[in-house]
Computed example of a mutant assay.
Amino acid sequence: MRVDNHNLAGRSNDPEQIDLIDLVMQLWRGKVTIIVCVIVAIALAAGYLAVAKEKWTSTAIVTQPEVGQIASYNNAMNVLYGNSAPKVSEIQTGFIGRFNTTFSALAETLENQEKPEKLTIEPSVKGQPLPLVVSYVSDSAEGAQRQLAEYIQQVDEKVAEELDVDLNDNIKLQTTTLQDSLKTQEVVSQEQKELRIQQIQEALKFATQANIAKPQIQQTQDVTQDTLFLLGSDALKSMIEHEATRPLVFSANYYQTKQNLLDIEKLKVDTSAIHAYRYVMKPTLPIRRDSPKRAITLVLAVLLGGMIGAGVVLGRNALRNYKPKAQ
């Protein structure tokens, strides 16, 4: 039992052990040094806060455009392609997809500038494509809000320009297609007319050879290509003259094609009325800056200053009480 007590006493006198009470007393005696370090750290933090560049983030939420915002484009597509035109929902999805792609490209361009700008776009809800959250970081709250609105408008105008180019290409393509269709139908109608004249001429030859000058049948609606010669040479000659001067006969499809072509030629689309997005939330005016955080910075300064002051006090005392071990 005495051995245990002896061991305990030996350990308590071990200079390597940390005496918390002594440690606290050392810190208390060196409180002036600690306070000075804290004050210096706070001064440095205040200087940092005074010169540090502020960062403010403005945020907006956008989604696919409303039907009214794409009405002119939708009407143009219906005129161009009729029943084959894309649905309104497909157009809306395509528009916001173009907006997302163009906005992402702009954000990448701004990030790679000599003086980078932080512009971001991402889904508002993870796993869902819409709505989209867009944000911009600036050195002032008003600047962030204003610049974000300008970038959104810039992207919207660029998408509208691209849609205008695509629409004009579609108009040219569809115009060419319809014109080619009309020419083809005219050629077919002309060939049908020439074939009809050739058939009457062949029937006239048979009627002349058979000495049939007058009609041999009463009901002309019963006449077929094989019995056409029974109308007589006189009637057939008159038919040939009539067919030669008769205008081409076209089907209803020809006139529908021509109507579609006229509608396309009169088509005018106001791209300024086309928008690729709709605001769910307009760019906000931030009320709290992202950095520097004044409260956090000052708290960290106090903690860091206190730690440095404590280190100075303890280090100084350790050097003062240091005794080289005997050789």
Rank of each mutant, 00 (worst) to 15 (best):
K118E: 14
D164M: 08
D14L: 01
Y277D: 02
H6C: 12
K55L: 06
S233I: 03
E54L: 05
Y277H: 13
P324I: 11
K323A: 13
Q218I: 05
S58F: 06
N168R: 10
V133D: 10
M1S: 14
Q113G: 08
L182R: 15
L228R: 00
Q128T: 07
Q179G: 13
A43H: 04
V223H: 00
V40W: 03
D164K: 11
Y73Q: 01
Y48V: 01
L163W: 05
Q179P: 12
V137H: 14
A213G: 09
N78M: 00
G232N: 07
L261F: 00
P286S: 04
S89V: 11
N211I: 07
R294P: 06
T177Q: 12
V155K: 02
D14S: 03
D139P: 10
T59S: 15
I91L: 07
Q113C: 02
Q92H: 02
V32I: 15
D263K: 08
T297H: 02
Q256L: 09
S124K: 13
V88T: 12
V24T: 12
V302Y: 04
I296V: 07
F95H: 08
E108Q: 15
I35E: 01
Q147H: 09
A41V: 01
E202C: 03
N100K: 14
K266F: 01
L262G: 09
E117S: 14
I200R: 00
T109R: 08
I171D: 02
E114Q: 14
T63L: 04
I34W: 08
P283W: 03
M281A: 14
K205E: 14
P116Q: 05
L132C: 13
S135Y: 08
S138A: 13
S140T: 09
I21C: 09
D290N: 09
K53L: 08
K55T: 12
V313Q: 01
R246S: 13
G30P: 13
A9H: 06
P123F: 09
V32G: 07
I197N: 04
Q113H: 06
D22C: 06
T224W: 00
R278K: 12
A252D: 15
A273H: 06
T245V: 13
I152P: 04
S58V: 03
I308G: 03
